[in-house]
């Protein structure tokens, strides 16, 4: 068996790949933002025992954490495109669908990994020493102020390692985008395979590409962890 990477020098394929990588990174970035919003808000509802919102949050977390993300994506995609909401493009005046494949992938990533993030952040909050919380309460901090100024900043720092794996998981899961026809890096790869039949070589390359994206993400998280490290705290 010989590996043939000649196709890699075709500018068209290069463009497909680069555009695909760009889309994958964008999907992941938007997904991560949404994941954090959902994770923090959900963890706050649970941690602060917000009446009427606790049970829905728990149901949401269990529902999204314990079902395949692919099923969730298809469900979102078919349901939302069925509703058929549209936006008017201010530049061209044309009507474009609100829930494109791209939006659905971002939503699905945000929801699936967000549900996991709720649990991760909650465990971080629980690891904040109760004495620190009592110190804040004794100074007159309300429950919400204590959460915002004391528990959340410390809790988020404590949950960086599991959050890093959640981010890596989100980036990997973004490869489902190809299944709702979003032109991510997997989509580019599929197109190239259809034209060149160099399946093995293309997949090898894609493997390396994902490795580089997730590796970069881990590096960034490590950088952030170093910057926000609390001097003298913990180990």
């Amino acid at each position: 068996m010989t590996l043939d990477f000649a196709w890699l020098f075709d500018p068209l394929y290069q463009r497909w790949l680069l555009n695909g990588i760009g889309t994958t990174i964008l999907l992941s970035l938007f997904g991560i933002v949404l994941m954090f919003v959902i994770g923090i808000v959900g963890a706050a509802f649970l941690h602060l025992n917000v009446r009427y919102l606790q049970t829905p949050t728990t149901i949401f977390v269990e529902l999204f954490r314990n079902t395949p993300p692919l099923v969730q994506l298809f469900f979102l995609y078919f349901m939302l495109s069925d509703i058929g909401l549209t936006l008017t493009d201010p530049a061209t005046g044309r009507s474009i669908p609100l829930f494109t494949g791209f939006t659905c992938v971002v939503l699905s990533l945000g929801l699936y990994n967000g549900a996991i993030a709720v649990e991760i952040i909650r465990s971080g909050l629980l690891a904040v020493p109760s004495q620190t919380v009592e110190g804040a309460r004794a100074l007159g901090y309300t429950r919400l102020q204590t959460f915002r100024h004391v528990e959340l900043p410390i809790g988020l720092r404590l949950c960086i390692p599991p959050m890093a794996s959640n981010i890596v998981s989100l980036i990997k899961t973004s490869s489902q985008a190809v299944l709702v026809a979003v032109a991510d890096v997997m989509y580019g790869a599929t197109q190239i395979m259809l034209e060149t039949f160099r399946n093995l070589e293309v997949m090898l390359l894609i493997w390396v590409v994902y490795l580089m994206i997730t590796g970069l993400a881990v590096l960034i998280v490590r950088r952030i962890a170093t910057t926000v490290r609390i001097p003298g705290y913990g180990s």
Partner: peptide, 16 residues
């Protein structure tokens, strides 16, 4: 809480 402050055995400072 403004009028009554408290100091604890474990200091209870904000580590961050």
């Amino acid at each position: 809480r403004h009028e009554v402050a408290m100091v604890f055995q474990q200091y209870n400072l904000f580590p961050h």
